[in-house]
């Protein structure tokens, strides 16, 4: 049976906006039942809400730049400051493979690292920061950490520009491996998202994680080859080392952009596998916690 829904405008009747088909006393459009345990990922629903994902990400980005005086400069300040400090204090101690200047060596790793740490921080706090949304409206909660990691990409894009300026300054050319860069960026974002899914859901339930995240990121930083080359780790230890997904990603970044290191495929494969497990696990864990998130946040 056809039911026409007529929308009233500001006082005046509007044209027919929505025509839907409904069975008389037939199947309900939606059944709500208490669910237990693990839930499947509802991809159709996520797709339906894709607009919201962009709006949320756009909001995060706009707000970040609107509220700051220095605006985009912040995106540069952090990696540049880190690069200067590492060059001054660590650069002397570490032997960089090839003849890459240490600032370029460090900055090349700081790019994915900043993207990762920033996205992870945003994603971990995302549910708490969007508490009002979570407790007042329904939409797939997965969108919140998703949007949070997306907003980190803008800072990444800005800081990348400086990297290419540096390459030009030091007369370093890039090879065809650079074409793999988008894939690597996606890998870093998914890594941040995977860990972010776990942490955001845990953060909503246990606020301890609010304090644990900065600590975790700090430890993770030293466990990743940002200030030192990944070649410090040798032999079969590389697989173990690669289980830190950022190790594989950063090494691959250096390979793709500087070409002075071996790609270390086994390490990258170990990283990829770890990300896959973290991501799938994170999605399902998040879905499991999603049902009653509004009661906890």
């Amino acid at each position: 049976m056809k039911v026409a829904i007529v929308a009233g405008g500001a006082g005046a009747l509007e044209d027919v906006v929505n025509t839907i088909e409904t069975e008389v006393e037939g199947e309900p459009l939606l059944r709500l039942r208490p669910r237990r345990g693990w839930q499947a990922i509802n991809a159709t629903e996520l797709w339906h809400y894709r607009d919201l994902l962009w709006f949320l990400a756009a909001r995060d980005i706009r707000v970040r730049y609107k509220q700051t005086v220095l605006g985009v400069l912040w995106a540069l300040l952090q990696p540049v400051a880190a690069m200067v400090i590492f060059t001054l204090f660590v650069g002397k101690l570490v032997k960089v493979p090839g003849d890459i200047p240490y600032p370029v060596f460090a900055y090349c790793a700081l790019l994915p690292w900043q993207l990762f740490s920033q996205s992870l921080t945003q994603a971990s706090n995302s549910l708490i920061e969007n508490e009002r949304l979570v407790t007042k409206v329904y939409f797939p909660r997965l969108l919140i950490p998703f949007a949070a990691v997306l907003s980190g990409l803008v800072d990444f894009a800005i800081s990348s520009v400086l990297f290419f300026v540096m390459l030009w300054y030091y007369h370093i050319g890039v090879g065809p491996a650079m074409l793999l860069l988008p894939v690597l960026v996606v890998m870093v974002v998914i890594t941040a998202l995977s860990v972010g899914l776990w942490l955001s859901a845990l953060n909503a339930h246990y606020r301890d994680f609010r304090y644990a995240v900065p600590f975790l990121i700090q430890v993770w930083f030293f466990a990743s080859p940002v200030v030192y080359p990944a070649s410090l780790v040798e032999g079969q230890w590389q697989v173990v080392y690669g289980m830190n997904p950022m190790a594989g990603a950063i090494q691959a970044f250096r390979w793709a952009l500087l070409g002075n290191v071996e790609p270390m495929w086994t390490m990258l494969a170990a990283s990829g596998a770890t990300v896959f497990v973290l991501f799938v696990g994170g999605m399902f864990y998040f879905r499991r916690m999603e049902r009653t998130m509004a009661d906890w946040v």
Binding site: I20, L29, L32, P34
Partner: peptide, 20 residues
Amino acid sequence: KILSRVTEMTEGNVDLYGRI
């Protein structure tokens, strides 16, 4: 909150015959 799917019920069920 349960009807608008913000949170989930512990028991029972709800059938919605339309977009909410």
